[in-house]
Design a protein around this nucleic acid. Structure first.
Lengths: 346, 346
DNA sequence: CATTGTGATGTAATCGGTTTCATCCACGCT
DNA sequence: AGCGTGGATGAAACCGATTACATCACAATG
């Protein structure tokens, strides 16, 4: 047994099949242009040798990497991983691999220095950015592969975007709460620079105006950071407000769950005393107590669309339009009419 | 301006620096062996040309891929994404990229056919398996890169494992609940073939025995699938039991949260009527209502250790030992002493 | 019959680096 | 002076595929 240690190469297949390496390559990538007999011989030789293509060699010759890079603000956050699932699905159908990079872990260094080397044609064939806090200049440097923004976006970055309809979501939230009779609604927002924060706020204000409510003042919103803890910590501050709001719209579900946690711990009942709603419809929102009224966005679909858009750009397409995906109100048990004695009653 | 369209290559740098390509390569990868003056010239030329290394070319020559593949059962599950964060962190320090593949999306086809091509030295330099349901033969085929199992494991696969101490976790759960005075405890398990299910069960039974309880019968466990919904659906069946258990130990937090949801909706109070505990300590477990008593495992650390072990194997190490990571009881508000009138009271 | 076209295949260049091996030079030692 | 040594460098092989171009046999066409 002269067991060859190294894996077989195309040359070995060619020798066994009695053809040239070029013919083997053609038989694999474009079977139509080789004769039936040759194709059969090559297939047999491949099976006999156990040959598998060396992708690195192909990629070098074809000047590509065979993979797409996803820049994720926080891999540990389920919100993003579900988008990744959608991306992954589309990429694999095209034989491309998914490279993932967590941008939080590079947050200490200047992003440009830490991320720069990765945004290069030799590292990936395309990039999907899920982190809206990155420097737009990162993506305009020479050698940067095609970019698509998903979910969040970067101001001033001229690349296609795939977004949920955050404005409409904000409007739906306002409409739902005002429809229940609420007149004094607190808005717990995401971090100020975040692109989602601004558009959800915009829709929310629009919805309030449509309901005939006066423009809310600065005291009618409270900033959070999208994390559950910030919701918990907001609760006592909310309870100290005078007048106390009868409803709270949170910019995501985690904060809403945190707020409910904090309020409940303080002995305030949701939704009987205060209504709380969220945004995103994360898995848990249907199962927490009370089940959370929220705005649903389709994260897997969002990932898929982003990947498709990127593939189009990678093939030379120049479709720069922004794709907006529908959102939907999920009415559950964390919202109700304001308590009878509340100051809101006409 | 004769703007070169193609990115600069090492040859361009060499020409500008007045040295050979070999010297440029050395100056980059092993600066100590070139003279000070040459290094300076090369650095200047690199800066002037904006040269960046073509990784594909290096990888081809060095017979490597420059990336590690993580096989994840369900990318959308936050549990796994947090492990990925740990893996990602370690890999990036070594200049390796993280490739992610969702094994659920290939579940329809036979895994061997769908996954086989990816388990190849030309696709990755190493593999971290997070999916315990895969065929062990996938990883023993020639050409498969080094493998490490993390979190779950595959029976019969002789590759290093990095696990939480599931047995100890099960024991801690039993000890906690029996310590509170519970004598009739239901175990809601994961799917039977899953490696986690067996070891948590084992520890749990051991803990019961240590507390002097009789070996539980088949009626004292109920199967789930690790998903929240299965917990919700178990609730009515639990309430129909006679005698009704005073405590429920669930094999993960999602199911526990589902059970609490189902019980609460049915008007049964947790923990006053029935205690419920989980396993994993997912983010949400501290914020749901009531906050969940659970077994904490360190997922980021688990990912890191798995990556480190894999790196060792990739460098020729042959450390096959199984690494067991500590777990810890997180005592929160979903467990309490059994109700006074319960049949358990002595 | 000479010519042209076509399909199948082989030869060799190519992708862009790394690395082996050879060369050259300066230096120290006898 | 002669020789060995070691450091710095260059020339060219090499990694394993794809693909431009050349070649060849054979059929169709004028």
């Amino acid at each position: 047994m002269s067991e060859q240690n190294r894996p077989p190469r195309i040359h070995d297949v060619a020798k066994m099949a009695g053809v040239s390496v070029a013919t083997v390559s053609r038989a694999m990538s474009n079977p139509a242009i080789v004769s039936e007999a040759t194709r059969k011989a090559v297939e047999d030789a491949i099976a006999a040798t156990g040959y598998t293509l060396n992708l690195t060699a192909r990629n070098l010759r074809q000047q590509q990497v065979g993979g797409v890079l996803a820049l994720v603000p926080n891999l540990a956050n389920p919100f993003f991983s579900q988008i990744l699932a959608g991306i992954s699905e589309v990429l694999r159908r095209r034989g491309l691999s998914l490279l993932v990079m967590d941008t939080t872990s590079v947050a200490d260094k200047p992003a440009l220095a830490a991320l720069g080397p990765y945004l290069n044609r030799s590292r990936s064939d395309g990039v999907i950015v899920l982190d809206g806090s990155l420097d737009p200049n990162l993506f305009t440097r020479p050698g940067c592969p095609p970019v698509v923004q998903a979910c969040e976006w970067i101001d001033g970055l001229d690349a296609p975007r795939v977004l949920a309809d955050n404005v409409e979501g904000g409007r739906l939230a306002a409409r739902h709460l005002t429809g229940l009779g609420h007149r004094h609604i607190l808005h717990m927002t995401g971090p100020a620079p975040n692109s989602l924060t601004a558009s959800r706020r915009q829709g929310f204000l629009q919805g309030l105006a449509e309901a005939g409510l006066p423009e809310p003042g600065p005291a009618d919103s409270i900033p959070g950071n999208f994390e559950t803890r910030s919701g918990v910590e907001a609760a006592p501050r909310i309870l100290a407000m005078d007048p106390r709001p009868t409803a709270i719209f949170c910019d995501n579900d985690e904060m809403a769950i945190g707020v409910i946690h904090g309020l409940t711990m303080a002995g305030v009942a949701v939704p009987d005393d205060i209504s709380v709603m969220g945004f995103d419809n994360i898995e848990m929102s249907g199962f927490c107590l009370p089940p959370l009224t929220t705005i649903r966005q389709y994260r897997t679909r969002l990932g898929r669309r982003a990947a498709e858009l990127l593939l189009d750009r990678m093939q030379g397409g120049d479709d720069r339009r922004t794709v907006i995906l529908d959102v939907e109100l999920m009415e559950r048990a964390s919202t109700a009419a304001p308590p009878a004695g509340s100051a809101n009653s006409p």
